[in-house]
Every structure is written in C-alpha cells, then in structure tokens.
C-alpha cells in the first residue's frame, strides 16, 4: 500500500490540475451531450427521451447525413496527407543551413494566422471565382479554369487548397522536432558518405516519428472536425448544393439553426466514434513505426 502510494503519488500531483479540470468541468458537459443524444431537445423546452430515435433516423432516413459523411471523408483523405507533406517538406528545407530561416518561417506561418476569418472567406471567393486570380494565372499557361468555388464538383478542392496553404502549425511542430535531432548524427553520416535521401530515411524519419505521429493524429482529428473554414466560405449553409456540407457544419445547423440539439448530439457522438476508431488504429500501429528514446527496451 505504501509502495503503491510512493509509486503513484508524484504522478497524480502533476496530473492534479488536469484531473480537477476533467472531472469538475469537462466530464459533466460531455455526459450531458451523451444523454441529450437520446432525446428530442429544442433548447427551449425540456429534453424528451426518445431512446435510439435520433440514431435510427440518422442511419435510415437522413440523406444529408450521408452526404456530410462523404464530404468529410473526401476532405480528410485529401487534406491530411497534402498538408502534412507540405509541412514536412518545407520544414526540412528550412531546417538546414539557411541563415534567413526565421524570416521564411514567419512568412510561411502568416497564412495560418489569418485562420478562418471573414477576410479569408471573401478572398477565397474572389480567388477561385470564374474571373478570379487563379483562373487568370491558369489562362497564362493556356488553361481555361472553371468557376471553382461555386461549382459543386470542385468547391471542396478549394478547401483542400486552403488546408494546404495553412500548413503553418504542423510545419512549426516539425521544425521543433527536427531541432531535437542531434546534429552529430548527420555529420557522421556525411563523413560515411551516406547520400541525402538515405539520411532522410535512416535518421530523420525514425527520429522524427513521434512528431510525425503527433501531427498525423492531430491533423486527422482536426480535419474530421473542420468547421470554421467551410462554415464561413459557404455562408453557413454548406453551399453550393451541399458540396461543402462538412459534418460539423451540418451538426451546427441542426443544433443552432433548426433547434435539434438532441439530434446534433447524436451526430456528434457518431463522429466521436469515427474519430476514436481512426485514432485507436493510429496508436495501435504506432508500436511498429514510432519508437521513443525512453522506451527502447
């Protein structure tokens, strides 16, 4: 008992703020939303228990739910790899030997500062309009572009471009990770005449694995939950023709526009299951490709 205490006490002291926050502030609302997902709740009158009704409706009768899933999955599949490759590539370019690195780093981070502001929404509509800057550039090389942002077939890709363009946060995290790799490893490899790409696969990738793993998990979670950019660019509706109906945009509208907080909660919990599944898979497979310094044995 004493040993149990001695073993656990320091950790729980460090964990205390989080434990208080989780059990006193976070857990209640989470459980409440789980409860609400089994009710019909319009936020004005009291919630009414309807069992599995919301979930049943979701899977059997709600066409827009499936559309939202389709949009979101397509986006995750495209935006996550695109953004991560972009971020890692630029981070590696910046990591090695450029004196002006600070300037570039700041420049590359700036788009992420603009976030999903109204300015971005207006700008994106202008950039990808039929007569927008993107098409003007394309016209120079003889391509006639579509009206990207208003065509339901292409509008989603403009959001993928937005995600790629705002690669600042994963880039910074990659950079911080690259900084943690001891320089002498590269110097030794240089002396041995190891070519650049092998330095990448033998040194950079394995030592960066924990950070890559972090970015992968976080970007996946974030992309599934993408809200602001889609909401603002589509004026809150998922337009044109539901092509930007991201899952959380649908959820938000169900909750706050159509007064169906119970149904929205059910949607949220299903999304949670999806994200948790993906994260669990990532954690499970990470045993095979992510190795930590302190767990080598």
């Amino acid at each position: 008992m004493k040993r149990f205490f001695a073993r656990n006490a320091p950790a729980y002291v460090f964990l205390l703020p989080w434990l208080i926050g989780f059990f006193l502030l976070a857990l209640g609302p989470i459980l409440a939303s789980l409860y609400l997902s089994f009710t019909r709740y319009d936020m004005v009158s009291a919630p009414r228990w309807i069992g599995w009704g919301n979930y049943e409706y979701m899977f059997t009768r709600d066409r827009r739910f499936w559309k939202a899933l389709e949009v979101t999955f397509t986006y995750v599949a495209l935006a996550v790899p695109a953004r991560l490759i972009m971020a890692l590539g630029v981070a590696m370019l910046l990591d090695k030997g450029l004196r002006t690195i600070g300037l570039y780093r700041a420049i590359f981070y700036l788009p992420s500062l603009l976030g999903a502001s109204i300015a971005i929404a207006i700008l994106w509509r202008q950039l990808f309009a039929a007569d927008g800057v993107v098409n003007q550039v394309l016209a120079m090389v003889g391509i006639q572009g579509a009206s990207w942002i208003t065509d339901p077939d292409t509008s989603l890709y403009t959001l993928v471009v937005l995600a790629m363009w705002q690669f600042g946060s994963p880039m910074l995290i990659f950079l911080a990770g690259l900084r943690g790799i001891p320089r002498d490893l590269y110097e030794a490899a240089e002396i041995d005449g190891t070519p650049g790409w092998r330095q990448f696969t033998r040194i950079t990738l394995p030592l960066l694995a924990p950070v890559i793993f972090f970015n992968l998990v976080l970007q996946t979670i974030d992309s599934f939950k993408t809200f602001s950019s889609a909401f603002i660019i589509s004026n809150g509706t998922g337009a044109p023709a539901d092509s930007l109906l991201f899952y959380t945009v649908y959820l938000f509208n169900e909750a706050f526009k159509f007064f169906r907080m119970g149904y929205a909660s059910a949607l949220a919990w299903f999304l949670l299951v999806i994200i948790a599944t993906f994260t669990a898979i990532a954690f499970f497979t990470s045993k095979y490709w992510v190795h930590y310094e302190n767990e080598r044995d």
């Binding site: 976070a26 976080l218 959820l251 909660s265 949670l272």
Partner: peptide, 23 residues
Amino acid sequence: FFALMMMTLMIPYHVVLIPQYVQ
C-alpha cells in the same frame, strides 16, 4: 487517463457548448 484526455480532443465542441454554458 490518457485515453480520456484524447477523447476530449475528439468531441465536437458545439454539442458541449450548452451544457457547459449551464454549468
């Protein structure tokens, strides 16, 4: 606890908004 912590990352914020507000 680590799993619980990760879970708080995954839940869409908008559905805990109202219970949190009441709290």
